[in-house]
Design a protein around this nucleic acid. Sequence first.
DNA 1: ATGATTTTGCAAACCATTCGCAAATTAGGG
DNA 2: CCCTAATTTGCGAATGGTTTGCAAAATCAT
Lengths: 127, 127
Amino acid sequence: MRAAYATRPREQVSAVLRREKRYLSAAEIHAILRKSRANVSLSTVYRTLDLLAGKGEASARVDERGEATFVVCDQSHHHHAVCNTCGKVEDVSCEAIESVANALRSHHGFKLADHEMEFFGTCGACR
Amino acid sequence: MRAAYATRPREQVSAVLRREKRYLSAAEIHAILRKSRANVSLSTVYRTLDLLAGKGEASARVDERGEATFVVCDQSHHHHAVCNTCGKVEDVSCEAIESVANALRSHHGFKLADHEMEFFGTCGACR
DNA sequence: ATGATTTTGCAAACCATTCGCAAATTAGGG
DNA sequence: CCCTAATTTGCGAATGGTTTGCAAAATCAT
């Protein structure tokens, strides 16, 4: 059966994501770890991110420059509100989707199965 | 001032997108063009896609494998309903966003500035 | 502790995308 | 039309984020 070793490098990568709460690329995480003298290889950062994303503990996003970035998040279905100022990401539930599903079916004959949403704006702390 | 030449290669790339109406990568477009004996270089396909995306005539999306894909679409603000069966993409307006904006502000203290949504399901033709 | 199994690190391999540059194409005025 | 200036194309080479192979190191169960 598959892996599951609780290793130091993995915990360190995970800790950075939990502390920062914003979208970070593998390279950024690697740089942050180096500063705190935690020498985790870039490969391990990538592998750990894939692992977390696979378990649903982190979600991925491709930024404007084409780099993959990750945040820790709920495992249940939800969406993200990203602050344009500080970058912090908050989990948001989606109640309003019902009305959208109805509109899609009646106006487009489209049967909704899944959806993705992302919000951008200013968080409470930055206002 | 900037470019604007109406060239054959650009028209051919654009025509493929208008005909297919689904997310296509540069490589896929290049392959389709080769089959119809239209020899447009891969570089030109990439450059034309950037151009169309810049003008808002096409919108980009990164697929599961990490490749950039494009569709032609309205220039006004809207969202996409992607059919899981045939891949066709329909433009969808968003009326329901008002209630979401209100919920974000009252529950999270978050001031919504922009948003992205994408829908997946089964289109009318495939049902 | 001990051995089986999983991870890590490093460097090399990948591969989609970008770039440099000379040749080809386009737009427009004369 | 014809010519020139400006833009675009194609090619191959360079880029750069991400993946991979493999031997050494770490982890877990016994």
